[in-house]
Computed example of a mutant assay.
Amino acid sequence: LDYSKVNTILKNEEDFHKILLFISTNHPDFYPDYISFENFSRFYDIKKRTLEFWVNEIVESDLYDLKFFKLDISPNKYYYFHFDEKLEKILRAITEEHIAANKYLEKFTELGSLNSMIDDILEEICEILFHKDFRELLREFLPGYMKYLAYKIEIKKELVATHDKLEGIIWQNMTDFMQSHNSEALESQYMEKIKEIENEISLTPKNYDLYNSKIRILLYFNHYNDVLTELENMLKLFPEKEI
């Protein structure tokens, strides 16, 4: 996580790294070891209020793109992990495997079937990932986690579909240019256009058409990772649009 994102408010960079240390120290892998806000603040010489505030901002809010998960094992005792780390990747793989194993998705509307699937997941993850003391807490956690995974999958599908649609449009529009320009000159021309569009975006960041123009150019030069980044940005900037 980048300190520059909070440096205007959190003036001490050393405190920032102490806050990250607190989050990483209180990880499910280290259970039952735990250090409280009070003990950590005293040992590492950081104000308890500062520590509590920024842990909450990093874990609970959308301050950073990285998604964190919090497990409340008991009052005032929390463990943290984040999306795409080793523990979460294994948890995701196990959860998705159990979902896929249910042939008829209609069963998920029946409470008994959902509970049965969660029991199966718990049986597996409480043997290899989490201490058994997390079992009942994870029973409450899993339904929300499964909804989060479903949301991520739907977003990925939307991005792929949009990518395919735009790619077809771009190739159709670029045919005439390809016939009349050599590739080197064309690339130079279009990279200049990218810079022009980015300058325009910096002046009018809410101009939807500018983002579409940039995506067309990126697609033409096969910069697909950049296209996906732009599409994700557009989903945030223009939630009302059908991208």
Score class of each variant (00 low, 15 high):
Ile73Ala: 02
Asn76Lys: 15
Lys152Thr: 04
Glu52Val: 06
Asp45Ala: 02
Tyr211Gly: 02
Lys47Gln: 05
Ser213Ala: 12
Lys67Glu: 09
Ile19Pro: 07
Leu159Trp: 04
Asp120Ser: 15
Asn225Tyr: 08
Thr162Gly: 12
Lys77Val: 13
Ile243Val: 11
Lys48Gln: 05
Thr204Cys: 04
Glu136Thr: 11
His181Gln: 12
Ser213Ile: 00
Glu96Lys: 12
Lys5Met: 11
Leu159Glu: 09
Leu111Met: 12
Tyr151Ser: 14
Ile99Arg: 03
His163Leu: 15
Asn222Met: 08
Ile201Asn: 01
Glu106Val: 09
Ile197Val: 07
Ala101Glu: 13
Tyr220Trp: 10
Ser24Arg: 15
Glu88Met: 07
Leu21Thr: 15
Leu51Ala: 07
Leu10Arg: 05
Glu187Pro: 00
Ser180Met: 11
Glu85Ala: 06
Phe69Asp: 07
Glu106Leu: 10
Glu192Gly: 11
Asn207Lys: 07
His98Lys: 15
His17Gly: 02
Lys86Asp: 10
Phe69Pro: 08
Ile118Val: 11
Ser24Tyr: 13
Leu237Gly: 01
His27Cys: 08
Ser116Asp: 12
Phe130Ser: 06
Asp226Thr: 04
Gln179Asp: 10
Asp65His: 03
Leu186Lys: 07
Glu38Trp: 00
Asn222Glu: 14
Asp15Lys: 04
Lys157Ala: 08
His27Glu: 02
Asn173Met: 01
Phe43Glu: 03
Glu124Gln: 14
His181Ala: 09
Lys206Glu: 13
Gly144Asn: 09
Leu71Pro: 05
Ile217Gln: 00
Pro28Asp: 06
Asn212Lys: 14
Glu127Ser: 13
Phe16Gln: 05
Lys193Trp: 07
Arg139Met: 01
Tyr80Asn: 04
Lys70Pro: 03
Leu237Arg: 11
Lys214Glu: 06
Ile46Cys: 04
Lys70Val: 11
Tyr211Asn: 01
His82Thr: 01
Leu122Phe: 02
Lys18Asp: 02
Tyr34Ser: 08
Val227Asp: 05
Tyr31Pro: 10
Ser36Trp: 10
Asp45Tyr: 05
Asn207Trp: 00
Ala101Trp: 06
Glu192Met: 09
Ser61Glu: 07
Asn7His: 13
Asp65Gln: 06
Tyr145Cys: 08
Lys206His: 12
Asn115Tyr: 02
Asp65Glu: 11
Glu192Thr: 09
His27Arg: 05
Asp65Leu: 04
Met174Tyr: 13
Glu52Lys: 14
Thr95Ala: 08
Tyr145Thr: 10
Leu219Gly: 08
Leu235Ser: 02
Lys156Cys: 00
Lys206Ser: 13
Ser213Asn: 14
Asn199Ala: 10
Val227Glu: 05
Lys77Ser: 10
Val55Met: 02
Lys165Arg: 06
Ser74Arg: 13
Val160Gln: 12
Asp29Gln: 01
Asp226Met: 06
Glu57Ile: 09
Ala100Pro: 00
Ile46Val: 10
Asn26Cys: 08
Lys70His: 07
His181Leu: 12
Phe53Val: 02
Val160Lys: 14
Phe130Tyr: 15
Val160Ile: 15
Tyr44Val: 03
Asp164Val: 00
Arg216Ala: 06
Ser202Asp: 10
Ile215Cys: 01
Met191Tyr: 11
Tyr208Trp: 09
Lys18Ser: 02
Leu1Asp: 06
Ala93Ile: 01
Thr162Tyr: 08
Tyr80Met: 04
Gln172Leu: 14
Leu10Glu: 04
Asp33Lys: 15
Asn76Ala: 12
Val160Arg: 12
Glu200Val: 00
